[in-house]
């Protein structure tokens, strides 16, 4: 088994794909456990399932007020 690596892939206009991580920690310090081999981390701030992408960046009608 090779050494485990955490790899982050940029999806322009979309989330970051993260492979090999155990948890994702938000700015408020809350930790979300990674439960699948690859996860999509929200970057647009519109997800209702933070820190995970829920594809809200696609939904032009749903825009949360800051």
């Amino acid at each position: 088994m090779s050494e485990r690596r955490v790899v982050v892939t940029d999806c322009p206009g979309g989330p970051l794909l993260v492979r090999g991580a155990d948890e994702v920690v938000g700015v408020d310090g809350t930790s979300a456990a990674v439960e699948r081999a690859v996860v999509a981390v929200c970057r647009c701030g519109r997800s209702e399932r933070m820190p995970w992408c829920d594809d809200s960046h696609r939904d032009r009608r749903r825009r949360k007020k800051p």
């Binding site: 892939t9 999806c11 979309g14 794909l17 996860v39 999509a40 995970w52 992408c53 829920d54 594809d55």
Partner: peptide, 10 residues
Amino acid sequence: VEADAVHEQV
């Protein structure tokens, strides 16, 4: 919801 947001990018 979560799985397919990942699968779309993959």
